[in-house]
């Protein structure tokens, strides 16, 4: 696409298509290609200052801006939901700066930007899932120094990672990491899957392209379709994807990741799907949970 074509036609738009200038997008795309070529490897990139704060998805936004084309249909989720404030804010940002179509439906989206979740519905070939990443370095809290962690990756020195898991089991009887659970990619790089709950880890091997952007830390990494992703564990303490027991109160799903909602001040609580699109789809198909019928009306 030429620069002239990529100007947003929408009235009042003063920015290049998807905000970033084409030079910057090319730089990000080069980083993305390298990241796809070396799955799990953190590629440094010259992250730009975006009009939203660092830590609020600037990495994801830059990656999305670099991959979006005018025909795309974008979905943005935060915590699995399309209507959380930051998801709304980012979606509006791209509507305004790229003039592209948006959707809440996982199946219809060509690009999905996410924070903290992988959609429940399996993604398909041709879709792109963009993750917002706060701390890309899985070894960061074991070794704070960048020069040292890069050496550890280069030399594949991951013993310390297992020491941490060993310590968890020795202290708690199990691996006490519930989200941002470290994975190893194709037997090589240890990678932080971003703070998704470990429930989502098995979905990391998927048909769609997965791109991870960390703006503040200036890193991009990626998983091509069907890349082998193994959650670190021990033979006798295997990785277990966990979630709250029970079924969604609205759609009755027993297999989706559940959010706990406190409903009163007497300890009453209920569980509902974290993936709002998945839940709505199930209810539209006639599935009903314990409190689903009435709630369905409320949401209509």
């Amino acid at each position: 696409m030429t620069e002239a074509e990529s100007r947003v036609e929408a009235p009042g738009a003063d920015y290049n298509f998807a905000y970033l200038d084409e030079q910057t997008k090319r730089m990000i795309r080069r980083a993305l290609l390298k990241a796809l070529a070396v799955p799990g490897y953190q590629v440094p990139f010259a992250s730009r200052e975006m009009p939203m704060p660092y830590g609020w998805g600037t990495g994801g936004v830059q990656v999305s801006a670099a991959v979006l084309v005018p025909g795309d249909r974008l979905k943005v989720i935060d915590q699995g939901a399309d209507d959380t404030t930051n998801a709304v804010s980012i979606r509006k940002f791209f509507q305004k700066t790229a003039g592209i179509a948006v959707t809440g439906h996982t199946g219809e989206a060509t690009v999905i930007q996410t924070r903290h979740r992988i959609p429940e519905a399996p993604l398909t070939e041709g879709q792109i899932l963009v993750y917002q990443v706060p701390i890309p370095e899985p070894l960061r809290f074991l070794e704070p120094r960048e020069t040292e962690t890069r050496r550890m990756h280069a030399l594949e020195e991951y013993g310390l990672m297992h020491v941490k898991l060993y310590e968890d089991i020795a202290r708690h009887g199990e691996i006490a990491t519930a989200y941002a659970y470290p994975v190893q990619i194709e037997g090589r790089y240890v990678m932080d899957p971003s703070p998704i709950p470990k429930f989502d880890n098995p979905k990391l091997r998927m048909a769609a392209i997965q791109l991870f952007g960390a703006g503040r830390e200036q890193r991009i990494y990626a998983l091509p379709p069907y890349t082998e992703v193994v959650s670190l564990d021990f033979e006798d303490h295997p990785f277990v994807p966990g979630k709250a027991e029970g079924a969604c109160a609205l759609c009755g799903s027993e297999t989706s990741y559940l959010d706990e909602v406190i409903v009163d001040d007497r300890g009453g609580r209920m569980f509902v799907c974290s993936d709002t699109d998945y839940c709505a789809g199930r209810r539209a198909a006639g599935h009903v949970g314990a409190e689903g019928a009435a709630a369905g009306e409320g949401r209509a």
């Binding site: 704060p53 660092y54 609020w56 915590q79 930051n86 924070r115 903290h116 703070p195 709950p197 966990g242």
Partner: peptide, 16 residues
């Protein structure tokens, strides 16, 4: 930015 991002919802991680 990073400090204030902890104001964003983190309920999925907190749930786990």
């Amino acid at each position: 930015g990073f400090l204030e991002h902890i104001k964003l919802p983190h309920y999925v991680d907190f749930q786990s």
